[in-house]
């Protein structure tokens, strides 16, 4: 729409706080790249020049959970790793979202074995399940767009009674 044009026209605009906050949040999602295995390489490819996640305002991959609001769990989560994933999730500030990238993260996928968690939704709330083994980078971008849509619809009052959970140790 062109913010400048609007400003020039009448110098003010009306909106709700929710709408503007949601718009700001969704346009600068900072992902926490929880790269575990093969999907992490495709996640790197999304950061690379060809797919370029920067077009969606999410190129700021931060390796510290304190600065992130979207966790992309990319790769097979084993029982040993599950505590770590949960700990990092707990360290992220609210509000936060989770993408389960790839088949083995979502359901255990091809790894029907003793050490693999059969779906991270057993210990994490997941917003988007992403199909593919690994998903193509375009598919991850699609998931990002879906999550942006979801973030855009959130309202401040959704987070009224949120408590920061205690941090569990390994």
């Amino acid at each position: 729409m062109g913010l400048e044009a609007k400003l020039k026209q009448d110098g003010y605009m009306t909106t709700t706080i929710d709408a503007i906050v949601g718009w700001a949040r969704k346009s600068s999602v900072w992902p926490m790249p929880m790269g575990i295995s093969c999907c992490a390489i495709e996640m790197m490819a999304v950061g690379g020049p060809k797919y370029d996640i920067a077009r969606f305002g999410s190129e700021v991959m931060r390796f510290t959970p304190r600065q992130c609001d979207l966790m992309i769990v990319a790769g097979t989560v084993t029982y040993k790793m599950s505590k770590v994933v949960r700990m990092i999730y707990d360290q992220m500030p609210e509000p936060k979202w989770v993408i389960a990238m790839g088949a083995c993260t979502s359901t255990g996928g091809m790894y029907r074995s003793y050490s693999v968690v059969q779906g991270i939704d057993q210990f994490l709330p997941v917003d988007i399940y992403l199909a593919g083994c690994p998903p193509r980078p375009d598919n991850l971008l699609n998931a990002l767009m879906l999550i942006q849509e979801k973030i855009g619809k959130t309202r401040a009052r959704d987070y009224d009674d949120i408590k920061q959970p205690e941090i569990i140790s390994l």
């Binding site: 003793y114 939704d121 057993q122 569990i168």
Partner: peptide, 22 residues
């Protein structure tokens, strides 16, 4: 010891803890 033949492929339920989903 997982690779022993008597150990089932899908493991023994409850032998490995999972964090709680709050």
């Amino acid at each position: 010891h997982p690779l022993r033949k008597e150990f089932p492929l899908m493991g023994i339920p409850g032998s490995l803890p999972l964090p709680k989903k709050s």
